[in-house]
Design a protein around this nucleic acid. Structure first.
Lengths: 344, 344
DNA sequence: GCCGTTTGAGCAATCGATTGCATATTAAAA
DNA sequence: TTTTAATATGCAATCGATTGCTCAAACGGC
């Protein structure tokens, strides 16, 4: 017992039994008598025994580590999902290794490689914005370990997914603006290769159509949806003298940029232009006016994602896995940026 | 080579050498000839060999994992520090396991326990707000692995630390307000057990004294510095009819709360009250008026923390480690919330 | 009291890579 | 040519826990 670290051998020696017996006792194996188990547990406590996860991982092939890949942890949505995942993972005595892809395809590949290298037992991921080829995810499946995707998913992979109903969220948001009297609603969106933006755009369009408003392609603007993109796009729209009375953005950051530019150009909010974002980032309640946005149910999403993960992990018959798609309902959070004066 | 996973033994067999030779070749051991190394590398590539980190970790005692404990990844400051740490760690071929303590003492202990359990090679941490006893950190040291603290540190542990000069940041911020004509500056702070809040308060007080303004204990308010705390405290101050012309908060979140309450109470900003926060959270440039705040140099802090970590890790003589304290200069970011009208 | 069954525990191999020591080969020095 | 030294590789133990198989003791049935 050098270095203060007790091993099962130390326990075995102390008790004059073998390491196998100790191992079985600690794992509550039925082939060990209760009396022995009790003795082992007692000795383990006395020696301050801490199991060596690495040894166990090597032998059993399980590292009790889940790799989580997100574009960035520095977004309320993602960090909340991570929190939701952690809650469940910890209850299964698993640890979470968080990796950020920074929305960069190269980095995403590297990070997955690295996760596989540390021998994670599976991966939970949300795909980066610039990722179009998903071969690196196939590597995970090839290893025969679970992969669950959330939020930014792809249909090219036959894996379980957890998403919100982006279509519904966008539909609701747009309909809300229409009910507040808007008719010329600008929509900020991003690459249509990404499911969430595609769905949100579809929801936006269908809401317009439902209320007899034609979809004007002039009003649909593509960008990366960062704050700066929101600013630039908004300025463009203003400069072009395109008529509009609202903006619905697929991201809170770009609607924030739009808000800044609108104010700088002398627009009164929400009287002249009504705004709705997507994501319910904390800052949306700090702005003036406060921003209407769509809450993505991040913690439940994390919980469900992790639960799905463990379902697959614990499945007896690994050959017969059914991939399932869970869809959560988002919630429209109505604040001042989208309301008529009399309603505020 | 079952299951598609090649081991050094497969390479060895293919090349008719022993596993030891392969291992040494892969690790670029000088005792192996260049010719053999080349052959091994080639065979490794052909067999798509991926080293088994777990086996390596078991034998060498190194997991190539750093545990990072932060109160929450969902704060720009912490996620940026993490990013800074990752940059360096990856360059050393190390992975980072991020753990959130959620500013909860119990959770912090558990999380450290869990990290030690997965056999991290060392820990980088920022201490939670509710933590007063640091015995769980001593466990890390007892294991003989490096521990480096950043930002929220303690002097009870003789370990390397990386912090910003909180005193200087606060001093600058306060002096700036004074130069803008403020004389009754409220200060929001938190538990004085936490180094950063203590230092910031000291900077605030010294700046006042330097300019011949007495420190009025009435103006110093203690809370947890969340948005809600900022709101509540500000309302209190207003209700008490305490006279004040500025607020300097040790946190951006609470200054945000103060801003909201001030506006609700009809104060004109920054004319009636000037505001300065601390942290340079992204939302501080979204508010109206935009918030003056102190930037904490998060990415460099992460870089330096990780570099310090590896210095210790790679130290030959582990018995003779010198703990060092690195202090970074923060930067005052002046925005509209603290400026006189004519300066905006 | 004999034999088969159940129960409890030990033996030894194994997971894959690393490493101290031994050995074989070759080159250089004497 | 012999000795010495350097170079290149092999052997086998090891890290700590797990697990299939074996075996001894205890027990019960007839």
């Amino acid at each position: 017992m050098k270095n203060g670290k007790a091993t099962i051998h130390d326990i075995a020696e102390k008790l004059q039994v073998t390491a196998s017996t100790v191992s079985r006792a600690l794992n509550n194996n039925p082939r060990i008598s209760d009396a022995t188990k009790k003795k082992v547990l007692k000795a383990a406590k006395e020696l301050n025994y801490q199991p060596n996860n690495i040894a166990s991982a090597l032998r059993s092939g399980k590292s009790r580590l889940i790799g989580v890949v997100v574009p960035t942890a520095n977004r309320n949505f993602f960090s909340s999902v991570i929190r939701g995942i952690e809650e469940i993972a910890n209850s299964f005595n698993y640890k979470v290794v968080i990796s950020q892809s920074y929305d960069d395809y190269e980095k995403e590949m590297q990070t997955i490689e690295a996760l596989l290298n540390v021998q994670v037992d599976g991966v939970i991921a949300s795909i980066g914005k610039t990722t179009e080829n998903v071969d690196h995810f196939k590597k995970i499946l090839k290893k025969g370990i679970p992969l669950v995707l959330f939020d930014r998913v792809t249909n090219e992979l036959d894996v379980s997914q957890v998403v919100i109903d982006d279509y519904f969220g966008a539909f609701q948001a747009t309909e809300h603006l229409i009910k507040e009297g808007c008719k010329r609603i600008v929509h900020f969106t991003s690459s249509q290769n990404i499911n969430i933006y595609k769905e949100r755009k579809r929801g936006y369009e269908d809401a317009l159509l439902k209320h007899g408003i034609a979809v004007d392609p002039e009003l649909i603007r593509f960008s990366k949806l960062q704050l700066e993109d929101g600013r630039a796009t908004m300025q463009e729209v203003i400069d072009e003298k395109t008529s509009f009375d609202a903006v619905f953005s697929a991201s809170d950051y770009s609607i924030m940029g739009a808000m800044q530019v609108l104010k700088e150009n002398g627009y009164k909010l929400p009287q002249d232009v009504k705004l709705v974002g997507f994501g319910d980032e904390p800052f949306t309640s700090f702005t003036e006016p406060t921003l209407t946005t769509v809450n993505q149910k991040s913690i439940p999403m994390g919980n469900i994602t992790a639960e799905t993960f463990f379902e697959i992990l614990n499945q007896k018959d690994q050959t017969n896995i059914i991939s399932k798609k869970t869809i959560l309902k988002p919630e429209l959070i109505i604040r001042n940026s989208s309301l008529n004066q009399e309603n505020i």
